[in-house]
Write a protein that binds this DNA or RNA. Structure first.
Length: 515
RNA sequence: GGUGAGGUAGCCAAGUGGUUAGGCAACGGUUUGCAAAACCGUUAUACGCGGGUUCGAAUCCCGUCCUCACCUCCA
């Protein structure tokens, strides 16, 4: 069982079908994924990072299993929030959204998210959007409300004319009506109807359309973009739980009404949970958000990614923010994750210069056991990921592999006679470690680079210079040579007070900054 | 009011019927001039509460309490 090399089939939670089900693909060997990306009016916060990491993980797991993935993540670069923000600062809306889109890309790349296959923008999809709206109008699923005083007209979706409305979010239109607190727009036939196209004045930010100048409504872009790059009936549609209603519900209505008789818009719907601060959802409107940039100023990007990965993507994450006595802000959860990243890179660094071996043949029992534990850990990691992206178990398995690796590296020093066997176990463990880390999207650089970048960051945060530390370390080396241990310990104590830890190894003294 | 998510040891966090998840913290050991790191071991008889089903429940059923989210923009 533990030696079974093939992980079980992938299954994921489907909001529409309510539950975890095996992935049933439209086309064998290929997966189409559409994920709702950001509205680019501001920099990304940890909640955005979570969504991106969750579905980057999905794509990595799918690809690891040999599936050919087309991954589309849109950029909403046309929106009233962008327009309003731009008005405040005097920046052109297009310039603002282009700038924010770039920052988003940079942030997501920093935390190990691969670039999607396509990153379409609303501003570059206007003809397709107009085409979908046009179909809806022709199908009588939408209606036009002419504009006044030279402004373009509006187009609204006729919600009650779409029988399946509410199937994703579990709502029914009649119950919603009583609970709705929407300001009633006189021009709509029904309060539930939503805008596909919003007319604007001739000079305003907008595009020409059959209904006059205007901008697309919020939901229509995803219908147009997914159709453009993936076609109707693609495999997985992903996004945050807050998008289930109304955004995703409306996408379904639009797309299925625009392409009647062509089946479901998307086969499976995956939604990630929220990041909370003090039990409340992190969000722009509440003002309780921490940006990705805030975190990366204090922590390594891989620490943020690991922190996100050890929480199951559908559950809530509590994001802790602590203020130290000296006023410094820290993120304890991210710090802990960073110490684990330290551990993993330190383990990998020990492999440097090590000769490993792979291949068949009998091993002494202790080493055969270690080898099968490594294989079991690998299998568990992949099996857990296949079961609705159980990354936490994969990380736990990764720690176990690293522990075995360290154990073997210790033994390698002590038991020279066993080195051939040890090299075999190390070879297998190294392989498993790499494979699991790659699927998770962590440990993406070399230990040397990781250590130098984190050292620089930590020293900068402490306001301590590297030269200063080096000088003290050198003093202590001299003291130890002279067997003046009292002085050596005093220097060590002093460095410790600064946040610097020392390690007296066989090759000399090395140091690192504590996290 | 409707819909959904969640309540697991000091803390974080997996687990959805039956042998230890894992991490942090703590303690002991190997190692070390002493430490640190690494490894090994120990520790908590944990599952919001009350019933029920079962040989057996954190896990299924019924009820109940609490937290959060969505129903308006939101990852």
């Amino acid at each position: 069982m533990a030696n079974d090399q093939t992980p079980p089939p992938i299954q994921v939670h489907d909001t529409l079908a309510r539950g975890v089900h095996p992935l049933a693909l439209r086309e064998e060997g290929k997966v189409s994924v559409y994920c709702c990306g950001p509205t680019t009016y501001d920099v990304a916060h940890v909640g955005h990072a979570r969504a991106a990491v969750a579905f980057d993980l999905l794509v990595r797991v799918l690809r690891h299993r040999g599936l050919q993935v087309t991954y589309v993540r849109n950029v909403t670069d046309v929106d009233d929030k962008i327009l309003n923000r731009a008005k405040e600062s005097g920046e052109e809306p297009t310039a603002l959204s282009a700038r924010m889109a770039q920052l988003y890309d940079d942030d997501m790349a920093a935390i190990g998210c691969e670039k999607p296959t396509h990153e379409p923008r609303v501003s570059q999809t206007i003809p397709e959007i107009i085409d979908v709206i046009d179909r809806l109008v022709k199908n009588d699923a939408a209606y036009v409300v002419p504009g006044s005083e030279g402004s373009g007209g509006d187009v609204y979706f006729r919600v009650r004319a779409f029988p399946g409305y509410g199937k994703l979010s579990g709502r029914n239109v009649d119950e919603m009506r009583s609970g709705a607190r929407i300001e009633v727009d006189e021009r709509k036939e029904d309060p539930l109807d939503f805008a596909l196209w919003k007319g604007c004045a001739p000079g305003e930010w907008g595009w020409d359309s059959p209904w006059g100048r205007g901008r697309p409504g919020w939901h229509i872009e995803c219908s147009a973009m997914s159709a453009k790059f993936l076609g109707h009936g693609f495999d997985i549609h992903a996004g945050g739980m807050d998008l289930i209603f109304p955004h995703h519900e409306n996408e379904i209505a639009q797309s299925e009404a625009a392409f009647p008789g062509q089946g479901d818009f998307a086969r499976c719907w995956m939604h990630n949970g929220f990041v909370n601060i003090d039990k409340e959802k992190m969000s722009k409107s509440l003002g309780n958000f921490v940006t990705v940039r805030d975190v990366l100023q204090r922590n390594d990007p891989e620490a943020l990614r690991l922190f996100l990965l050890v929480h199951h993507y559908r559950g809530p994450i509590g994001f802790d923010v602590d203020k130290l006595d000296d006023g410094r802000v820290v993120f304890p959860g991210i710090d802990e994750a960073e110490r684990k990243i330290d551990y993993l890179y330190t383990t990998i660094a020990r492999l440097d210069g090590m000769t490993v071996a792979i291949g068949p043949g009998d091993l002494p029992k202790a080493y055969a056991d270690a080898l099968s534990q490594v294989q079991a850990a690998r299998h568990e990691a992949l099996a857990s990921l296949a079961d609705d992206l159980g990354a936490a178990n994969a990380v736990a398995a990764l720690y176990r592999v690293a522990a075995t690796l360290n154990e073997m590296l210790d033994l390698h020093v002590r038991k020279k006679a066993d080195r051939p066997a040890i090299a075999r176990v190390i070879g297998a463990a190294q392989h498993a470690l790499r494979e699991i880390a790659d699927v998770l999207g962590i440990l993406r650089t070399t230990p040397t680079r990781y250590q130098s970048r984190t050292r620089a960051q930590r020293l900068a945060l402490l306001g301590v210079s590297e030269a200063d530390v080096e000088a003290k370390v050198e003093d202590r080396v001299q003291a130890r040579k002279a067997k003046d241990f009292a002085r050596a310990d005093a220097i060590r104590g002093e460095l410790e007070g600064m946040g610097v830890e020392l390690f007296d190894g066989p090759a000399g003294t090395t140091w690192k900054v504590k996290k």
